[in-house]
């Protein structure tokens, strides 16, 4: 990881949605209060946290694909420059790539191979990506509904890794994948990072994340509550500081499967 070169810097960002109640009365719903994350060159940052804590919304805010009723505050910088809509137009899709959370992001009317190649990918790159992710050649000719959940997920990952991305935003890349395949994805991410790519990975799969990530940021209710190194997590509960992070560790099936009341924990922390 190159600490001098910051690829993505998100500073005090907030996001709220305008919701309609009845007729014309409306209210603002704040989903992100104050989030801070930094991704350096060659770094894999894993973001973990409760569902609904604004992880995906953050990724969408960086890409500028939030729905029109959203308003964003704070600052997002890409390689030192403020990420404006015109800069986005230039970089998103070529240097900034997203692996979306839901397999419904695949175009239902386009064959998988064509989607992976996109506009610039070559046949060779496609074949290499498919081989790497254990997808059969016949999958190229299949439509998304003909793929299983795990296969569709691998198609989504392939679309991102065949580009020359400098920043990959991976929103839950591993659900539906077998442990071997998840581990292979993490190895590939590590390789891409070592070549100078910055990766922001949103995940619930802490086990997989720990295989590759350098840093782990913990989100809760729209705020960054903790940021620790992956080593802290590997060492176990005692190396972690924040009560929510500790509870997250204890809730893993291999560490006791304890369900804690998250809101109680947060009260204790404040």
């Amino acid at each position: 990881m190159n600490k001098d070169k910051i690829i993505l810097e998100v500073e005090d960002i907030s996001v709220s949605f305008r919701m309609y109640d009845k007729g014309l009365s409306k209210h603002d719903l704040t989903v992100i209060k104050k989030l801070n994350v930094t991704v350096h060159e060659g770094e894999i940052l894993a973001i973990v946290g409760a569902s609904g804590s604004g992880k995906s919304v953050l990724a969408h805010a960086v890409l500028g694909i939030l729905p029109s009723n959203a308003s964003v505050g704070g600052e997002i910088r890409y390689c030192g420059k403020q990420l404006t809509n015109s800069l986005r137009k230039e970089k998103v899709g070529s240097e900034i790539i997203m692996i979306p959370q839901s397999v419904t992001y695949l175009d239902p009317l386009m064959k998988a191979g064509k989607q992976v190649r996109g506009l610039k990918g070559t046949k060779q790159q496609l074949e290499e990506a498919f081989r790497r992710y254990g997808l059969d050649k016949s999958a190229e000719k299949k439509y998304p509904f003909q793929l299983s959940g795990g296969m569709a997920r691998r198609v989504l990952i392939s679309t991102a890794v065949i580009s020359d991305a400098k920043l990959i935003l991976a929103d839950e890349p591993t659900p539906g994948l077998s442990e071997d395949m998840a581990a292979e994805t993490m190895r590939h991410f590590r390789e891409l990072a070592d070549q100078g790519c910055g990766i922001l990975m949103i995940t619930h799969d802490i086990e997989a994340a720990l295989k590759a990530a350098d840093t782990i940021a913990v989100f809760y209710d729209g705020e960054t509550i903790d940021c620790c190194t992956a080593d802290d997590f590997r060492q176990g509960r005692d190396a972690l500081k924040h009560p929510y992070t500790k509870a997250l560790w204890s809730a893993l099936p291999e560490n006791g499967f304890l369900s804690a009341d998250a809101s109680e924990l947060m009260k204790g922390a404040l």
Partner: peptide, 12 residues
């Protein structure tokens, strides 16, 4: 695969 989309605490 009902809990792959959930954080560890919610999963538990």
């Amino acid at each position: 695969e009902m809990s792959t989309m959930l954080d560890a605490i919610t999963q538990a």
